[in-house]
Design a protein around this nucleic acid. Structure first.
Lengths: 167, 167
DNA sequence: TTAAACTTTCAAAAAATAATGAAAGTTTAT
DNA sequence: ATAAACTTTCATTATTTTTTGAAAGTTTAA
């Protein structure tokens, strides 16, 4: 497998995996491309490399910047904008976890809390709904907190301890 | 908010969240419905409650059974099949984590390994590709192992320790 | 201030995904 | 063995999501 094939394989796989962290194919592919590029790329470069339209490139780059994992880079002497990805994989994970928590987990927790707080009318079904959503709330709360901890500052203590266990 | 509204809110939210764990809306909604039902439901019940077709119900129930979080329940004296969801939220999470790892993370890791093993031809781009995919491989490997550990047996030691930290 | 270089927006088109429903398939009771 | 009760399959239709491309917008250089 040569460079070109390997790069395409990586970009393709990463693109297909986009759903894992909730983004579309083009967005994931742009990210993959920037992640393995030694230098920042222009929109032109990206369009050409991935075979996508200008509008598509523009919108998805904006999306990646909203996620906070891609940013504009000023290249001296160049008029157009260049883009680069966050290169540190831990930092990448940290940002993604934080964003997903904010965008999806927190809103869900709000609903779980709301639903589990309805009045108990004595009906079996109502009681089950309250019980199950309460359990779910507590679980998600713990899981989210764990994820954030793991992925955040406290990497030292917790991660090191865990990693020791896993080796 | 009464029972009906609360139930619909939960089912709707859970459905919208389906993408978080990679399943479609109907599938997530069926799961939500079964999760908060005190008793097993027939396909008829599910179709009616969610307003979906028979074919849709059938296929998505099968999908949920493939995930291993919904199963058939035999109700004595009834000819038709009844379905119930795994009710323990930790068990649910464990199953989902295991399946996602098997379906998505493992295949991705295989590609990362493959791509990071190409021959170093001395080119800067090739070297960057190798370096970045290697880093990603190592990170995903650790994260996957952590997730599995956390979600699996060793809950006692690790989880308790972590939970203590998070309270 | 003008115009070239570049980027963004968004209505329309294309592609991908999900849902329907009726025919085919299965199981069970008699 | 038959038929009623029920489930699955899958070609077709509907819906949703993504992509395009050209017009509108912005920035920069002269």
């Amino acid at each position: 497998m040569n460079y070109k094939e390997a790069k395409e394989k990586f970009i393709g796989t990463w693109g297909a995996l986009g759903s894992l962290w909730g983004i579309n194919k083009a967005m994931a592919q742009i990210h993959a491309l920037l992640y393995v590029s030694p230098d920042p790329l222009s929109m032109e470069d990206i369009m050409e490399d991935l075979g996508i339209s200008r509008g598509n490139a523009s919108m998805n780059l904006r999306g990646l910047m909203d996620w906070g994992i891609v940013y504009k880079v000023n290249v001296p002497g160049e008029r157009k904008e260049f883009f680069a990805s966050e290169k540190d994989v831990s930092e990448l994970a940290r940002t993604i976890a934080k964003e997903r928590s904010r965008r999806e987990i927190q809103p869900t927790m709000r609903v779980l809390k709301e639903v589990s707080s309805i009045e108990d009318d004595g009906n079996k079904k109502t009681q089950e709904l309250i019980k199950k959503t309460k359990e779910m709330y507590e679980f998600v709360e713990t899981a989210d907190a764990m994820l954030n901890r793991i992925v955040n500052q406290e990497q030292n203590w917790v991660t090191k301890t865990l990693v020791k266990f896993l080796k």
